[in-house]
Design a protein around this nucleic acid. Sequence first.
DNA 1: TTGACGAGCGATCGATCGTTAGTTTCAATT
DNA 2: AATTGAAACTAACGATCGATCGCTCGTCAA
Lengths: 220, 220
Amino acid sequence: MPPTASPLLEPASAPLRKGELTAIRILVAAESLFAERGYAGTSLRDVAAAVGLRIPSLYNHFKSKELLYAAVLDRVVDPVLDILNGFLAAPVSERPTHAEVIGQVMALLDGHPNLPALLLQETQTGGRRLTPGLRHRLAPIFGRAFETVQATDETGRFEPDEIPLFVLALYHVIVGFHSIAPFYREVSGDDLSTPESRDRQIRFLTRMVEALFEHAPVRS
Amino acid sequence: MPPTASPLLEPASAPLRKGELTAIRILVAAESLFAERGYAGTSLRDVAAAVGLRIPSLYNHFKSKELLYAAVLDRVVDPVLDILNGFLAAPVSERPTHAEVIGQVMALLDGHPNLPALLLQETQTGGRRLTPGLRHRLAPIFGRAFETVQATDETGRFEPDEIPLFVLALYHVIVGFHSIAPFYREVSGDDLSTPESRDRQIRFLTRMVEALFEHAPVRS
DNA sequence: TTGACGAGCGATCGATCGTTAGTTTCAATT
DNA sequence: AATTGAAACTAACGATCGATCGCTCGTCAA
């Protein structure tokens, strides 16, 4: 039992164990590298060098490269799923405006800059390296997102079988915006990662979502 | 000079050179592998095995792995950029409907199933492996897309500095739809790659684009 | 003081990476 | 039939991959 914390406060207070801190340093360094170069493109030598350790020391904290990657993914995705669940679980009566939701999601991604790249790489490989625990959390979140969008589309512009496509489209617009920034800067010269660009994207997303939820005019 | 074709018809008729055909077989196999596993995740052994050759034979046609990858990318992206240029160069008077454009783009992607994955991987790495010739073709295409969207947004729902975000958003929705299919099937059970799903996506995209270009109501 | 243990390291493993050299096969041309 | 060149092969290279072995510290409890 750690001597620095009372048993009751232990989970809330700092963990403070010596090697536990090293594990976190490894996770932080590996997160950036995996996000930038992908799983196959990142070697344990890169990770060890970024942390300032030798390779064998990594194995004191993670049993294999695959498990290190899984730990990185869990550590990043899990808290975001929690927050997302909070958004989607809010009762309809307290539903925030489109602008508020978009602002919160964008702020969430600001706090987790590696998340979009990691998500894209994982979805692109069919989620083959996804932790089982993580995978089983996704389906209900998708389902809740479907219900929320369906309830928000009061005028019924979109048919029920288009709702999942709507959710996927929003996901791709948001995640894609962040992950294409380096490429877009390369080809156009404009930097999408500045605060001004971020605000512009929030403005655009708000207008776009409002347009999609506006009353549909008579069909021809 | 090849003996089978007249000099004038030579570029249009079949090339038919012996090793030229092998090079194409290599390109086809490498394209699928690079799209599925990425550059770092694909070994020349995988490529050779897929073609039915030994590794050194690959070097009779491509001087290195990097050049093979560049050739794969050029071969896939170049004709698509040509077609896209044709779309965007059409005069305003002959502008097709939204549904027509979306249908044509989706048909284009049907003919190049590996394109979305390759594009995503390339944009995610900042286009670091992009051929110079290919890179310089992108900026004018983006520019033309901006002009087209700007001209189509007759009611001025979006401000000029939001037009690039609009183009990027459409790009991400379309490309993301194709590349997330395996993952979405894994987590939800639904297959987005069936013809029915494709048609549903076309229907959704059309409704979405129409909504974005509808007359904006009075702002509050 | 001592013994157990967490956590770092150097050395090294077999496997695989991209790449090259040298040789053989074989069809087309002389 | 002899020649030749492209294109396939076998064999092997050094470098790097993920992973494991002992060893050595420091810390802390007994």
